[in-house]
């Protein structure tokens, strides 16, 4: 493939808060439906109708990587994005504190950091967003 996906962007004005992205993400990564294990999250202020969808912006100089003492976060050379090694992650939360977008999460079941890995280059949330609020930015 000539083009490579850099990161995902979400148009929060188009997002309806249906959370299909969370469902699909958890199913893809964990083989289970569990929004709290999703790498993309929609924080939904229902009384005001405000949706705050969040996903990793795949920084080129990632704060999460620098903050990770056990060196569980490294650059994935093929995709050019920071990636969590679940075997090395101790769930300390330093990366979560460091992330400027608050886009890295703690999996409540496994107690390790989880973040968007672009599904290895074919992000499923983009496919299943019926509102087309989620788009992949390519280089």
């Amino acid at each position: 493939m000539a083009t490579k996906i850099k990161h995902i962007v979400i148009n929060k004005d188009v997002c309806t808060g249906c959370r299909y992205c969370e469902i699909i993400c958890s199913l893809t990564h964990e083989k289970i439906v569990n929004p709290k294990s999703s790498r993309i999250r929609v924080f939904y202020d229902t009384i005001n109708g405000v949706k705050n969808p969040i996903v990793c912006q795949q920084c080129t100089d990632p704060a999460c990587l620098k903050a990770c003492k056990p060196v569980a976060i490294t650059m994935d050379l093929r995709l050019g994005i920071p990636k969590v090694n679940p075997r090395k992650c101790v769930g300390c939360g330093s990366c979560i504190k460091a992330c400027p977008s608050k886009a890295i999460f703690l999996d409540p079941q496994k107690s390790i950091a989880i973040k968007c890995d672009l599904c290895g280059g074919d992000p499923q949330c983009v496919k299943f967003c019926m509102q087309h609020a989620i788009n992949a930015i390519v280089s």
């Binding site: 199913l27 083989k31 294990s37 079941q109 299943f128």
Partner: peptide, 25 residues
């Protein structure tokens, strides 16, 4: 809740969703 729901055949489910259901909408 932080537990998940297991799906018997998620491939089949997602395929139906992506084809038939999306088409209907």
């Amino acid at each position: 809740g932080t537990k998940g729901i297991y799906i018997f055949d998620s491939e089949k489910l997602l395929k139906h969703l992506k084809t038939e259901i999306e088409w209907k909408y």
